[in-house]
Amino acid sequence: MNNPYRNLMEQKCLSEQAKQDFYSSLSCSDAKKVRRFPLKAAIVAACILLMIPITALAVENIFGISVVDTITGKMLNGRPGIGYEVNYPTATARPLSDFPEELQTLDGNKTVTFNSWQAAEAELGFTLVNNELFSSPHMIKSTAYNLRYDGIGERVHCFTRYNGKDGQLYRATVTAAYLYQGTAITLQSTVTCSHPAISKEQEYEMHWSGVLYESQDVAQISQEQYTAANGITATIVTAERNGNRPTQYEAAFFANGASYNITIHSYDAVRDAWTKDTLIRILEAFVF
């Protein structure tokens, strides 16, 4: 069967670099191959697995808290008009000299994991977040991200994704996950730097933020502008979920040469008002 689509796809092949990466991953993984679990470990694992639903049931019955994280079914497929999107036509790029020399000459993409947001900032060479709530002892680091597609294969608290092209960095995105007084929070910040091969429009797109929700998952989406006392004007998107699931709030704003995105939801729909209040407190606590 011959057709234009087939002819087109025949030209797309896995790169030699990717093949070499696979062969080296295979030999590295081979060294890590483990024996079958001994019987003792299997019994302990079975006991732990048994305890999880029992504990969840107890927590649910005693405190009325659902311990199941219900953030599922969100997807982005590039189609505009469904869900929402936030754009920053006034976004500005940082000078390349703001970044450490070893990052300035990055070619291609790389992901680096960190134990804390501050460690990510230290590598980046400047501060992105000055917010007392994120240094509060109640703000607990969580390991929400599974970076298996980046060859890291573990759940991490914080990571930075660097993008480079033609031997020069053009974007860095820091992401971290937290638990704070009954809510789950993700904080993300993106900075870009001018690149000869990247247009202004592409620079704006790199600060683009948006979510498409599957219609069966979300009952209603609304958005509003919130201006904090510190001068931040954030777009807050509220996604009310079907069933008795917690509402998800997402705030996005651009300040101090970086775009910020904060996503928050509680573990219980009853606490939706508290969740939004927490998001507002986070926005108010930013200092630039």
Binding site: M75, L76, Y145, Y149, T173, I198, N261
Partner: peptide
């Protein structure tokens, strides 16, 4: 799975 991930949602590569 990849399309649904938070990671892809926020970081669309050029």
């Amino acid at each position: 799975d990849h399309l649904k991930s938070f990671w892809r949602k926020h970081v669309v590569e050029l």
